[in-house]
């Protein structure tokens, strides 16, 4: 990890010209995005801007119709979630991330269970799970109770902790703070910074600009399925960012002006 920890080096993960279509809806058109090691990139945009679709493209859940993914400089195909996991991409989804009937340990290790011979290494898994949750200051009553009995916030922290077990290089977080209380939001933000300090690339989707300004290094804006600017957190103002997200440049006033100039040319709309 240390050799790629240079945030000005080649991106760990780069997407270029990614397009995705659902029936009549062009969800993504020609989208570019990149993330370097030890960098937090926030992905923001209005509802339906294509953020979740883009995350699914990277995670291998919904492969793109066209465009390329480049992993550490070489083009790769991510057709299945397993491909993404094998590369070192961990994804934390907003919902549906955990099996409610399984306990916390089983959920943490689902898909990468520790084995002793052909049997599950329950003791090893429980030990690592407890250590991990302790390290991350995640507070849950017990690692052996079904996830169904945890609160929404506790489930989210379990889901995020889960992504760290596979020793990933890039972590995707889809609205990690959406369902959390104040204190748990702070914990998650701390957690994100800890990931960056460990040299991981982090892509965070968030609707909460406070969270975005708190942790992101760069802020990529999507609007109606297209790139609408990438901003440096230190230089961008909140107003500019909001304008890029909502397309405020394209507001009622500008449209009226455009219509007027059209009328001047005798063009009735």
């Amino acid at each position: 990890m240390a050799d790629t920890a240079d945030s000005s080096g080649t991106p760990v993960l780069a997407l270029s010209g990614v397009s995705k279509r659902f029936g009549a809806v062009q969800a993504l058109s020609e989208v570019d995005l990149d993330v370097r090691a030890g960098e937090v990139v926030a992905l923001v945009g209005d509802n339906g801007a294509g953020k979740s679709t883009l995350i699914k493209v990277i995670a291998g859940v919904g492969p793109p119709d066209s465009g390329t993914l480049t992993w550490e400089g070489r083009p790769v195909a991510v057709a299945k979630p397993h491909d993404a996991q094998a590369l070192g991409i961990a994804t934390v989804y907003q919902d549906l991330a955990l099996c409610e009937n399984l306990d916390v340990v089983a959920n943490l290790f689902l898909g990468r269970e520790l084995m002793r011979g052909i049997a599950l290494d329950e003791v090893g898994m429980e030990k690592q799970a407890t250590e991990l949750l302790t390290t991350l200051s995640v507070k849950i009553p017990s690692v052996r109770i079904p996830v169904a009995s945890l609160s929404g916030g506790q489930r989210q922290t379990v889901a995020i902790s889960r992504s760290l077990l596979g020793d990933p290089k890039v972590v995707l977080l889809d609205e990690p703070t959406a369902a959390l209380g104040v204190e748990q939001t702070a914990q998650v933000l701390d957690l994100i910074e800890r990931l960056r300090d460990r040299g991981l690339g982090v892509i965070v989707i968030s609707h909460n600009l406070d969270d975005v300004f708190a942790v992101a290094d760069r802020i990529a804006v999507l609007r109606l399925g297209r790139n609408n600017g990438v901003f440096d957190r230190r230089t961008v103002s909140r107003e500019d960012l909001l304008a890029a997200i909502t397309g405020a440049i394209d507001n009622v006033v500008t449209r009226r002006q455009a219509r007027k100039s059209g009328e001047d040319r005798g063009d009735q709309s």
């Binding site: 995670a59 859940v61 979630p81 989804y93 549906l96 099996c99 409610e100 399984l102 959920n107 990468r112």
Partner: peptide, 13 residues
């Protein structure tokens, strides 16, 4: 896992 949450299982690989 598949019986408890098919989408979660699929996303876990």
């Amino acid at each position: 896992a598949v019986g408890g949450g098919i989408e979660a299982a699929r996303r876990a690989g």
